[in-house]
Amino acid sequence: MACPQCDTLHYAARLPEGSRAYCKRCGVVIATERATAFAQVLSLAITAFILMVAAISFPFLELDVAGHHNSISVLQAVTVFNDGIALLLAIAVAGFIVFLPLLRLASIIYALGPLVRGKPARRSAKEAFALAEFLQPWSMAEIFIVGVAVALIKVAGLAHVSTGPAFWAFCALVLITVLKDQLICRYSVWQALD
């Protein structure tokens, strides 16, 4: 096998359980060995998917100022831009924080689902996994959460803000996604999909 970053050749050996293999030259992780990794990744992806559905349906933030009350969901947060050039921004933001992460989770579930149950991979599982890999840098849920934190502090002086159930769903979703991306081993997934 070749290192995906620097192209150095390595022998693909069977690794001890729970260990990681690093490239001898540039030091990136090139494979990890965990018997239960697929099942864990799949279950985390399903959890994250459900949390995302919850995160977009419940109120995300609530704001009270001088008797006015405003409660928004994540989708409202992005569809507020609805005129002219701002609409493009709305589409991009909605994509980055909701649709691309959902698509990515769905592709992972589709590609890994049969493998975990010991069945042969689905016909377009390779395309689905390739799509999930391609979408990784463009799924920005975790960045959105930091953005929310900054926005909350900015309006804190102006009005009273409280967080809705969707906010916590979104936070949990971010943690689970990070954990899932740590566990996934591209090399093993491609071997298994073959």
Partner: peptide, 9 residues
Amino acid sequence: AILSALVQF
């Protein structure tokens, strides 16, 4: 995005 969604009074 969040500020403009929240602060609409």
